[in-house]
């Protein structure tokens, strides 16, 4: 069961990565990151079945961080949208050196 769960986790994670690479909509990219976090959570839960409750504790932490990240990240996106009228990553290059 562990192997299957890890495989599913790996596939989901890879889908998230591909989403980050191919999408340019900031919100969707953000959601892809959430998908990657979920994939990792699945691994944690799977391992916790084998090794104990620590994995589940970590899932709680990941969720907390994800919530915080969503709050700040979305606030940033709103802020950028107010300035640039877009959430397309192609048009957002404030960090250009």
């Amino acid at each position: 069961m562990l192997a299957e769960a890890l495989a599913i986790s790996a596939v989901l994670f890879t889908i998230g990565v591909i989403g980050v690479l191919t999408r340019r909509n900031a919100i969707i990219v953000f959601m892809c990151v959430e998908l990657m976090l979920n994939a990792v959570n699945l691994s944690f839960v799977a391992f916790s079945k084998l090794y104990g409750a620590t994995g589940q504790v970590f899932v709680v932490f990941v969720m907390t961080v994800a919530a915080a990240e969503a709050a700040v990240g979305l606030a940033i996106i709103i802020s950028i949208f107010r300035h640039q009228e877009t959430v397309n990553l192609k048009d957002i290059n404030l960090l250009r050196g």
Partner: peptide, 11 residues
């Protein structure tokens, strides 16, 4: 050269 790497494109 270094600045060209910093395109600002998160993608």
């Amino acid at each position: 050269i270094g600045s060209q790497l910093q395109s600002g494109q998160i993608g």
